[in-house]
């Protein structure tokens, strides 16, 4: 198994997290995303015509898009069905809903970070405003979950929905978005960083606990 990876990518970090949580072997292939733009090179477009990372290769299968890779890995390698509770139709619906939601976090919070950290030319005001409205939805959801005694986005335990939503929420401050208006989100981030096997990426700290 091979992961085309970039160390500063939150979407690649999602895959590395699940690989660690599932304790599977995976070769990491570093892509020079910045400043090399290797993901737009002819060679890489042969691997992913969309010119995006992460990409996973496994048993001859080439699969792109972070959430799709999470689904693939959890279905294939999580024998206990913990990270992808496929036996429960309600949970399948909920987890999928939040997997899709994770792309909204990417489209907003990650965009603001690309602007601030890598100098991308985009409307950072619109990206931050979009992130704030997305985080409001997540905050209200996690608040309701806590009233019911639940700590995770869906179901009684963390799922790939939590993994998918974690990186670009935890990295929001890299894009100039202060998380102090969302206390339930901050509690959920802290719980996530305390998961067994958790490790950090640049911009996410683990000392605070």
């Amino acid at each position: 198994m091979k992961l085309y990876d970039y160390v500063l990518s939150g979407n690649c970090y999602k895959i590395r997290l699940l690989v660690r949580f599932l304790e599977i072997e995976c070769e990491i292939v570093a892509v020079d995303f910045y400043p090399g733009r290797e993901h737009k090179s002819a060679a890489f477009l042969g691997i992913n015509p969309l010119g995006q990372i992460p990409v996973l290769e496994d048993d001859g299968l080439v699969i792109r898009d972070a959430q799709a890779i999470l689904l693939y890995l959890a279905n294939k390698y999580d024998g206990h069905g913990r990270w992808w509770p496929s036996g429960d139709p309600r949970l399948v619906g909920e987890v999928t809903m939040w997997l899709v939601f994770a792309d909204r976090i990417t489209a907003t919070s990650s965009a603001a970070r690309m602007h601030d950290v890598l100098g991308y030319d985009l409307d950072v005001g619109a990206a931050r405003a979009g992130a704030r409205s997305v985080f409001r939805v997540l905050e209200d959801h996690l608040t309701d979950r806590e009233f019911g005694g639940h700590e995770w986005i869906a179901g009684p335990a963390p799922t790939i929905a939590d993994i998918a939503c974690f990186p670009y929420t935890a990295l929001a401050h890299d894009g100039g978005i202060d998380l102090s208006p969302w206390p339930a989100i901050r509690r959920w981030l802290r719980r996530f960083t305390n998961l067994p096997g958790f490790f950090t990426m640049p911009g996410i700290d683990h000392i605070r606990r």
Partner: peptide
């Protein structure tokens, strides 16, 4: 500036006024 329960023992957070 916050709810008591939001600042559990051993944690720090930010508030703006």
């Amino acid at each position: 500036v916050g709810l008591s329960a939001a600042v559990s023992p051993g944690t720090a957070c930010r508030a703006l006024v």
